[in-house]
């Protein structure tokens, strides 16, 4: 039986009377490739913020490797995080090597930078300024940075938003390789149902509450679940417009 690396129990986040997450329960097993889907405002980024220790005023329990994240922040050393679109000054004077090196801990070896850049096919551009790269290339740099400390889990928050389709394909191939060849557990939120159906081994459907969590095929081959998901997304869409 595979080890549970993440356990979420009754996770509830209340933003001044508005429930962003309502009693969310699920777990992630080692080597899972979990796709978290849900419309805008469904609580995906809030969920990640709680998991990454950026948001602390939640109810419920989050455990990484069996330990509550409220008790210890050591788990962060085992996690690589790729945000939606990292905000940084366009003219920030940092080379790709320097950006990847920011993720290094004291004990890491500097040759790890070249190693992870090779994994994302950017080793020949390591002396370029980060702001000179395309959006797709920048996201690959952030994957490399997330990998530099050999994490067991990679968390990606809608990482391909605004990226062209060719770059997306390469990005997805890198994720598959990391999961299948290097056994890295991947937790990835996305709007792209086709990509999730193709890549993820498991799916979590979130719309403030979790209404499905299980094997990917079970979700994508179930007409009722898909219908429920699209209706729920539509309601959320309408709700946003009313707001």
């Amino acid at each position: 039986m595979l080890m549970k690396v993440v356990e979420i129990e009754n996770l509830t986040v209340d933003y001044q009377g508005i429930l962003a997450l309502d009693k969310v329960n699920f777990s992630v097993e080692s080597k899972d490739f979990l796709g978290i889907i849900g419309p805008n405002g469904a609580g995906k980024t809030t969920l990640f913020s709680c998991m990454l220790g950026l948001l602390n005023n939640y109810k419920g329990e989050i455990r990484f490797f069996g330990t509550s994240i409220k008790k210890s922040k050591k788990y962060l050393g085992q996690i690589g995080y790729v945000p939606q679109k990292p905000a940084f000054e366009k003219n920030f004077p940092a080379t790709i090597s320097e950006v990847v090196g920011m993720g290094l801990t004291k004990n890491s070896k500097k040759d790890k930078i070249d190693e992870v850049l090779q994994k994302v096919w950017l080793h020949e551009l390591s002396h370029r300024r980060i702001g000179d790269l395309s959006g797709g290339q920048q996201q690959r740099v952030f994957i490399a940075k997330a990998l530099v400390n050999d994490p067991q889990i990679l968390i990606l928050d809608e990482p391909v938003t605004g990226i062209d389709s060719q770059s997306k394909e390469l990005f997805y191939q890198i994720l598959l390789d990391l999961n299948q060849k290097e056994n890295i557990t991947i937790i990835w939120s996305s709007h792209d149902l086709d990509a999730v159906a193709k890549l993820a081994s498991k799916v979590a459907c979130l719309n403030r509450t979790l209404f499905f969590h299980g094997i990917s095929e079970e979700f994508f081959h179930n007409e009722d679940l898909l219908k429920m998901y699209s209706e729920s997304s539509m309601q959320m869409h309408m709700h946003h417009h009313e707001d």
């Binding site: 220790g53 950026l54 922040k73 962060l76 940092a94 920011m102």
Partner: peptide, 18 residues
């Protein structure tokens, strides 16, 4: 040096790195 550069580059990611 590394922590200051990282925090200047992106505060959120620096926080996630502990």
């Amino acid at each position: 040096y590394r922590q200051l550069v990282y925090t200047t580059f992106n505060e959120e990611q620096a926080k996630v790195s502990g």
